[in-house]
């Protein structure tokens, strides 16, 4: 019997999710033994036409990492969807947009202006911007079109499962792969694999009190007590609003959880939930003091939506930035 085929693809992401697959160490041999890897451009030389040649549904599972922010990524997402029986949004970017998704508070024109014209290191006297089509003597050159917004994978194609994390922890990755290798029955469509049902706090060993916060700190501003809950100490730990499964890696070493495992099952909007929770425990009833305490949060959106913005209720506010300019 031929081995089931697997594919791994990398769209708008940093590549950490590819590394985490390799981080399963010797188990990678089990993967190679059990599956026929048909597409993994990061590690081996495959071409898109190889994928196009496979019959629809011919790939057993595709682990797709990265968000969708240009036309090529969309094209491959659609192609791999067609070819795969099981499509997994693998890692935070595919799951919910992750860091690339933060770009949704702005738009393409602004990004181009900054990147190609305004940064100090840019040398572009004519102010040239990327063009999708360029006429050259040799013919027309094409590059993918950059979109106004960043999408999670499931905003573009139908997704079967999600593996959260930035990146997913390798033990969880192996658990998911092992499940597939052993041919165990697949969970219901839409399930989140390789993570728990509770929050990061559940895995966190730190001692917590009833919370009362008088000011917030950034990580460089204080040396936290190693035993106590970071949030109790005023550090903006996203643990309470973040799904468990990572093993509370960050908080165990004194770094506040940034929320890469995404919202837990009861939460409709991770950032709004955190805003609600934090404001509930701010220790003041005086508007002026409340403003002062809130001012100690340097970047609320970047903190509460670091991984989840593209998948939040407000995933994107406007195609143009009229309102944003009005605010200023």
């Amino acid at each position: 019997m031929p081995k089931p085929k697997v594919a791994l693809y990398w769209a708008a992401s940093c590549g950490g999710c590819e590394i985490t697959v390799v981080d399963i160490e010797a188990h990678i041999l089990d993967v190679a033994k059990a599956f026929d890897i048909v597409f993994w451009p990061c590690l081996m030389d495959f071409k898109v036409k190889d994928v196009e040649a496979i019959e629809d549904g011919g790939i057993f599972v595709t682990l797709f990492n990265g968000a969708i922010r240009n036309s090529e990524q969309e094209h491959l997402a659609k192609l791999l969807r067609r070819k795969s029986k099981v499509l997994v949004a693998f890692g935070s970017c595919a799951h919910e947009g992750c860091i690339p998704g933060l770009a949704n508070v702005t738009n393409r024109d602004e990004i181009f202006k900054t990147v190609y014209q305004e940064t100090a290191s840019t040398d572009n006297p004519k102010g040239v911007l990327p063009q999708t089509k360029t006429e050259m003597p040799e013919g027309v050159l094409e590059i993918p079109e950059f979109w106004n917004k960043v999408c999670s994978l499931d905003q573009v194609v139908d997704v079967d499962y999600y593996v959260p994390g930035c990146p997913p922890q390798s033990n969880q990755v192996w658990a998911v792969l092992d499940h597939l290798i052993q041919g165990k029955p697949l969970p219901p469509k839409g399930s989140i694999l390789g993570a728990g049902q509770k929050t990061c706090c559940d895995e966190c060993p730190r001692v917590r009190k009833e919370k009362k916060i008088k000011r917030f700190y950034r990580t460089h501003e204080i040396v936290p007590n190693p035993e106590e809950c970071l949030l109790d100490q005023g550090l903006l730990c996203m643990g309470p609003a973040t799904r468990d499964g990572c093993g509370a890696k960050c908080v165990k070493v004194g770094v506040p959880c940034r929320g890469c495992y995404g919202p837990p099952p009861g939460s409709h909007d991770m950032g709004m939930k955190m805003i609600s929770a934090l404001s509930s425990v701010i220790d003041s009833e005086d508007p002026a003091e409340i403003e002062r305490i809130i001012a100690t949060i340097a970047d609320p959106v970047g903190t509460f939506y670091r991984f989840n913005l593209a998948h939040s209720i407000l995933y994107r506010v406007q195609e143009d930035l009229k309102e944003k300019q009005a605010v200023k």
Partner: peptide
């Protein structure tokens, strides 16, 4: 209502960052 008050203050800042007039 004090909880509502505090949520309101923080929410205004976040809406503004999203580009919604507070």
């Amino acid at each position: 209502n004090y909880k509502a008050l505090r949520r309101y203050h923080l929410l205004r800042r976040v809406l503004e960052q999203f580009g919604i007039h507070p």
